[in-house]
Design a protein around this nucleic acid. Sequence first.
DNA 1: TTGAAAGCGCTACCAG
DNA 2: CTGGTAGCGCTTTCAA
Lengths: 336, 336
Amino acid sequence: MATIKDVARISGVSVASVSRVLNNGPKVSQKTIDKVSKVMKDLNYTPNANARALVTQKSTTLGVVIPDLVDPFFASLAHGVEQVARQRNRQLLLSTGLVSAETEMQAIKLLIERRCDVMVVHSKKLPDQALIKLATNVPGLVLIDRYIEEIAHRCVWLDNFEGGKIAARHLLALEHQNFACISSVHQIDDPLLRLQGFQQELKCADVDIDSDLIEYGEPTLQGGELATQKLLASGKAFTAIFVYNDAMAIGTISTLEDNGFKVPSNISVLGFDDVLLSRYSRPKLSTLNYPIEEMAMQAANIGLELLTEQAVTIKHKNYKHIPRLVKRESTSFLAK
Amino acid sequence: MATIKDVARISGVSVASVSRVLNNGPKVSQKTIDKVSKVMKDLNYTPNANARALVTQKSTTLGVVIPDLVDPFFASLAHGVEQVARQRNRQLLLSTGLVSAETEMQAIKLLIERRCDVMVVHSKKLPDQALIKLATNVPGLVLIDRYIEEIAHRCVWLDNFEGGKIAARHLLALEHQNFACISSVHQIDDPLLRLQGFQQELKCADVDIDSDLIEYGEPTLQGGELATQKLLASGKAFTAIFVYNDAMAIGTISTLEDNGFKVPSNISVLGFDDVLLSRYSRPKLSTLNYPIEEMAMQAANIGLELLTEQAVTIKHKNYKHIPRLVKRESTSFLAK
DNA sequence: TTGAAAGCGCTACCAG
DNA sequence: CTGGTAGCGCTTTCAA
C-alpha cells in the first residue's frame, strides 16, 4: 500500500507538501496540488488514519457500547449514534457482548485502546464508581439509560418511574380497576422502577394490585406468554395489564386470545418501548414510546461537545426523558 | 494519558522491556514483569492500539459495511460479524449509510483508511469491476449477498432464484392454483430473481400467473398493505400469495383480514427472510429462512482466512446458500 | 535478560 | 510557497 513518501518521491515534492494537499493546508500552489493529486490517484493512495491519529492526538471515531446488536432496542440506539458519527465525519466503533461487569469493562477498554475519545455507553452492571472513574479518563464518555448523580451532566436517561405512572394514569382514565402486571426477571432497575411508578399512581387512586397478579418473565415473546399463563392460572380477574416491554406484551396478547379473551374488549394490554414490533402486531399495541434513537443522538452530541466546551458550562444540564403514551388498539375503555 | 515511556521511566527499565511484558515477550525476568506490571496498573496505562497497528502493520479490526442498522436483517448480519470479531479478538468497525454507489464506496474507503484488512461488505450498487478492484487491494474483503464470478471464492450469497422455486413448490404442494405475487420496487436483483424462480417453477406445473396479480411495493409493512390493496382492487381471485419479505407479508395479512379474508383458510401467505417479526405475527408467518447471521459469520471467517492461506487453495470454493422453508401458520392446504 | 535505536506513516514546526 | 526534520507510541532488530 502506497505511503505518503511514495507520493512525495514520485511527484518530486517533499512529504510536507503532500501532507499539505492532503489536508487542504494553506499556501500550496495550484501546480503542486494538481501534480500531487494526480500521483495520489495513480497510486491509489489512501492516507493511514492510524498514523494520523497518532500524530494529531485526536480520534476520528465514535464509540458505542451495547449488550447486543440483535435486540431492536439496542440496534436503534446504535443507529442513533451512527447517524451522529456520519454527520460529524467519524467512524463508528462498536463494542458489544455485555452480560457482566467484566465484559462491559472490557468493551470500554477496547475503545480506549483505540484512543476513542467519545463514546456512548450502555452499562447496567458496572458499579457507579467504576463508571465515574472511567468518565474522568475519557473526556467524551456519556452514559445512556443510566443516571449517576456525580456525573449527571453526562447521563442521558429515561424516567422509568414516571413511565409506570403514565401507564397507570392511562389505564385508570379508561376506567379500569382490576390490574395485572408483568415485569422482567432481569436484574436491572428499569422493571422495578416501572412497576413502582405504576403501583404508586394506582395507590393515589385508591386502587391496589393483587400480588398474585404480578408476574415476572424473560423480556421476550415467550416470557410474556409464560407469565400470562401464570396470571391466568391464578384464577383472579383483571381487565387491564401493564407489561414490561413490547415483545412480552405481544406474547401476552397471543396467550390471552388463545384463552378466549379479546384484546382490548375484554382485557387491555399496555406495552413499553414502542419498538417496530408494536406497529406490526394485531391489534396494534398501545405502548409507551422510549425515544432511544433520539436519546442516543443526544448522547453522542453531548460527548462531542464535552470535548470542546469547558465541562463547567454544561455541568448542570439535565438529560432526563419522559416516555410518551402511544395509544393504539390494544387498550380501550372498560366494557360495562 | 500515560505512554510506554512513562511506564519505562517510572519502573526504571527501557521501553523495550515494557513492550516485552506487554506482549508476553520471551525472555523477561519475573522481577521485571512484576515491577512493570505494577507501574502499569498504578498509571492506569492502556496501550495505544493505533501506534501498535502502525508499527506491526497489522490490524485488529473487523469491518462491516451495511446500508443501515435499523433494518433487523442487517442488524443480524452485523451481529454475525460481531460474534466472529469478539471470538477472534478484533474490534468491530461499522460503516453504514448506503443508498448509492458513492456512499458504498465511501464507507469502504473509510475502513481502508483505518487499514482494516478484513471486511464483510454488503454492496448492491457498486459495479462488479469496482468491487473486483477493491478486492485486490483489501486481502480480506468478502462480499455478502452478492455473487461475482471473478471473485466467487469471496462471495457468500443466497440463491434467490432457488428460493422462488422452493416457494412455488410449497404452495403447489398445498394444491393452490391461483397465485398472486408481491415484489419489491427496489432496484436490486433479489426480488427479480425470487419472482423469476417462482414463475419458472409454476410453469413446470403448467400454472401461469396473471400479470394483474403481480404487484410491487416498498419492502415494508405499509408497502405490503398498499400492494395488497391493489391486488384486491384488480378483482381477480387468488388463493395463495408469495411476498417479497416478511414485513410486507405481515402487511399483506393485515390488509387481507381487514377485507374479510381469513389467512390461511381463504388465502395462504408466504413470506421471505424469516426475521424475528415472522414469529411474532398472528397467524405466525410461513416463510423462507435466510440464514443471514450464519452467512455473515462465514463471511467474516473467510475474510480472516484469506489473510493467512494462499488464496489459491480456496479459490474454487462455493459459498452459495439455499433458503429453507419454514412452515408456520400462514400457509395451508387449499380449502375445497 | 536487557537497552539503544531505527522506523511504521503522518503532521507540524521552523527555515528558507 | 516549499523542504527538512522532530516526534506521536509502539515493536523489533542488534548488541551488549
